[in-house]
Computed example of a mutant assay.
Amino acid sequence: MTSRHLALLATGGSLALLLGALAFQHVGGLAPCKMCIWQRWPHAAAVLLGAVFLLAGWRPALLMAALAALVTAGIGAFHAGVEQGWWEGPTTCTSGPVGNLSAEELMDQILTAPLVRCDEIAWSLAGISMAGWNAILSMVLVIVWLMAARRG
């Protein structure tokens, strides 16, 4: 396979993982936790970097995309460890902007917001959570990105 074919495969892999996460959220009704959202950003970066390489041929994008895949793999592995109780995860929560909400609207938002914990497994396949699968598949993508970078 050429560098371009490998880059297309890795770009498609990150795009598929990102779209899969969005489908679980919007079609499957599984609200993401804070760390789930963190894992999405590097995939988006890898897709953009892959597009830069595929459209402009800018080779440094391949190594940058490999780094993005490595970052999401690391976050996924950390998240899987939190789910298994091997270590503690973040204790903070996140919310949207509340500056222009009335007290009643703010209270309604608080009471209706889904409680999504980072230490609970929402879905798994073969005993591996979504975070674990992201870590595994993202490491495969790191290898594909690096193979693309090595090919001249």
Rank of each mutant, 00 (worst) to 15 (best):
T72C: 12
P32W: 08
E88Q: 10
A51R: 05
R59D: 13
L48G: 09
E104F: 10
Q39W: 01
L18R: 12
G20V: 04
N100K: 07
W87R: 09
G81D: 04
P90I: 15
W87T: 06
E120N: 14
I143Y: 02
L48I: 13
V140A: 05
A66P: 07
A44L: 05
A44Q: 08
I136F: 01
M139Q: 12
G29Q: 06
V82Q: 07
A45P: 13
T92L: 13
A10L: 03
G89E: 10
C93R: 12
H26A: 12
W87G: 04
L106Y: 07
G12M: 08
W87A: 00
L70F: 15
I110S: 04
Q25T: 15
A61Y: 05
M35E: 13
A148Y: 00
L111R: 02
C36I: 07
V82E: 07
L18M: 10
C118M: 14
M147G: 01
L62D: 13
L101G: 04
M107V: 15
L137S: 08
R151M: 03
R4E: 01
V142N: 14
L6M: 01
A126Q: 13
R117N: 14
T72K: 02
L19I: 02
N100W: 10
P114G: 12
A31P: 07
C33H: 09
L9T: 00
G127T: 14
F24T: 15
Q109H: 03
E83D: 11
L6V: 04
V82W: 12
N100M: 08
W133C: 03
M107Q: 03
Q39E: 10
G13I: 01
W123F: 14
H5L: 01
T11Y: 04
A122L: 14
L6W: 06
L146A: 01
Q25N: 11
I37T: 13
G76P: 08
R4Q: 00
H26T: 10
H43G: 13
I136P: 03
G74P: 06
Q109S: 11
G152C: 09
T91H: 12
A69K: 03
G81T: 09
L146I: 03
E105M: 10
I136Y: 02
V116L: 11
R117M: 13
Q109W: 02
W58R: 02
V52H: 14
A80F: 06
I75L: 15
W86H: 06
L30P: 07
S124N: 15
S102Q: 02
I128K: 04
I110Y: 02
S14P: 13
V27G: 10
